[in-house]
Design a protein around this nucleic acid. Sequence first.
DNA 1: GCGACAG
DNA 2: ATCTTGTCGC
Length: 238
Amino acid sequence: MTDLLGPAVSPATVAEAEAAQEELRARVELVSGLRGWPVTVAGLDVSYEAGSSRVAAAAVLIDVATLATRESAVVTGTASFPYVPGLLGFREVPILLEALAKLTDRPDVLVCDGYGIAHPRRFGLACHLGVVTGLPSFGVAKTAFTATFEAPETERGQWSPLLDGAETLGRAVRTQSDVKPVFVSVGHRVTLDEATDLTLALSPHYRLPEPTRRADALSRAALRPAGQDARRVSPPGG
DNA sequence: GCGACAG
DNA sequence: ATCTTGTCGC
């Protein structure tokens, strides 16, 4: 089928992808589109198979107040774009959209595994997904990327700014006391304060927010043959 | 020029 | 991301 949207959706080269990001960044809205505290949030994540291009994407819809899982969807497919730092969106957005489409209810906000605005061209995965879906979104990354930061105080809830010179791109947030911080940045139609508060509300027990934790587990399990979940098969030596 | 580099 | 054994701790 003809790709009517061109490079903005499926770039053929790194140069085209970077150019597309420069175009798409103009569509990011740095104001809140939330109507008060959200009722539901969808956590998203993608898992990869070792020596192949097979991937699995999961979307888990969670009730923010109770953290109960309302519904979840998982889909397997093939990665159509290589991993290139700064271009993660082109690799994961397509299959994540498929997983999102399988959800019955529309989430109030998306939580992504990676960065939003704290990106070389200010258009990380969370911005990409937000712009394409029109939904509020933000990212929670596990490791540092482009910005500089000082370690936040060690108590849960403490944070320090992610900086690029004088520009604030996000926050290093301590979701658990004495545990490495996570990196929160805005994606689309969400403020940094909202993203920070949500990250903390969604991470009562572990370092990572429940939505992305559950999406990670689901996508990972989807790559395993049926019947081998949480069980060891063909142990070395018989 | 060289290294580092979300997932 | 994934490859990997044991180990310390709640």
